[in-house]
Simulated scan of single mutants.
Amino acid sequence: MDLFGDLRRMNRRQLFYQVLNFAMIVSSALMIWKGLIVITGSESPIVVVLSGSMEPAFHRGDLLFLTNFHDDPIRAGEIVVFKVEGRDIPIVHRVMKIHEKENGNFKFLTKGDNNEVDDRGLYKEGQNWLEKKDVVGRARGFLPYVGMVTIIMNDYPKFKYALLAVMGAYVLLKRES
C-alpha cells in the first residue's frame, strides 16, 4: 500500500473533500460531548474505571455514565466519581458516611468496595471528608469492559498512535461509491 502515491493521485478537490469530511466528524464528536455535559450536568459525563477498587460492582475497563445535578442530594451507598486536589485522575468509589451540619451543608466519606480502608488516605493532606464541590458525577449506568480500549491506549502509546494513523488514513483515502 503506497499511501503517498494514493495521495498524489487524488485531485485537490477530492483531498479537500476528505479533509472537510474528517473535520466534520471531529466537530460532530465535540458537539455531542458538549451536549452530554449540558444534559447530565457533569463536567465529564462518561468515565472509564481504571482500577479494581470497586470490584465486584465495577471492573477495570467498565465505562460509567454520570450525572451531577446539584439539587439532587448525595446519599450513603451511592457511587460517586470525585477529584481530589493534587490528583489529575478522578476516583470512582462508594459513599460510606454522610456528615450533615446544622446549616444544611454536608460532607461525606468514600471507600472502594474492594478496599480495606476508607479514602481518607487519598484525600489531600488534612482533609477528612469530601464536599459536593469535589464530585464530578454520580454513576447512573455502565457498559462492561468497553473502556478497555482507553486503558490499552494509555498503557501502550505506540498502539494509540498507530490506531490514530490508520483511522486518519482511512478517512482521507476512503472514496465515495
Rank of each mutant, 00 (worst) to 15 (best):
60 R>M: 01
145 Y>M: 08
13 R>M: 05
22 F>Q: 05
86 G>D: 08
54 M>R: 00
137 G>P: 01
20 L>P: 02
107 K>R: 13
69 F>T: 12
103 N>W: 11
148 M>C: 12
111 K>Q: 15
64 L>Q: 01
3 L>Y: 15
99 H>N: 10
73 P>N: 03
126 G>M: 06
103 N>I: 06
44 S>T: 15
150 T>Q: 05
4 F>Y: 11
125 E>D: 06
58 F>A: 00
69 F>L: 15
29 A>K: 03
98 I>L: 11
3 L>A: 13
39 I>K: 07
42 S>H: 00
156 Y>G: 02
76 A>M: 09
25 I>Q: 10
48 V>G: 04
15 L>A: 14
43 E>A: 08
113 D>H: 07
142 F>Q: 02
94 R>N: 12
152 I>F: 09
21 N>A: 12
98 I>D: 03
115 N>C: 09
51 S>G: 08
107 K>I: 03
78 E>N: 00
152 I>R: 01
152 I>W: 14
131 E>F: 12
74 I>T: 14
82 F>E: 00
167 M>E: 08
85 E>Y: 10
138 R>M: 02
19 V>R: 05
176 E>G: 05
159 F>M: 08
124 K>S: 14
61 G>Q: 02
16 F>Y: 07
56 P>R: 02
141 G>I: 13
76 A>I: 04
107 K>Q: 14
50 L>D: 01
60 R>Y: 00
7 L>G: 04
75 R>E: 15
167 M>S: 13
28 S>F: 13
12 R>I: 14
92 V>S: 15
3 L>R: 10
55 E>N: 02
26 V>F: 07
27 S>R: 06
106 F>D: 08
97 K>A: 10
94 R>L: 13
51 S>N: 14
44 S>D: 04
75 R>L: 15
101 K>H: 08
97 K>W: 11
121 G>V: 13
37 I>W: 02
72 D>R: 13
126 G>C: 06
104 G>F: 06
8 R>C: 08
37 I>L: 08
74 I>Y: 02
150 T>H: 03
123 Y>T: 12
130 L>E: 11
36 L>I: 02
67 T>A: 11
144 P>A: 11
73 P>I: 10
76 A>Q: 07
159 F>V: 15
4 F>L: 15
125 E>T: 06
168 G>A: 14
11 N>G: 13
126 G>S: 07
129 W>C: 08
138 R>K: 14
94 R>C: 10
150 T>M: 06
139 A>H: 00
89 I>K: 07
136 V>A: 02
25 I>K: 09
74 I>V: 15
166 V>S: 15
19 V>L: 14
81 V>R: 00
34 K>G: 10
122 L>T: 07
146 V>D: 01
10 M>G: 11
100 E>F: 05
97 K>N: 13
129 W>V: 09
45 P>I: 00
94 R>D: 09
132 K>A: 12
7 L>I: 13
72 D>P: 04
136 V>E: 05
16 F>R: 12
66 L>F: 03
64 L>R: 01
146 V>N: 02
172 L>M: 15
106 F>A: 09
23 A>T: 11
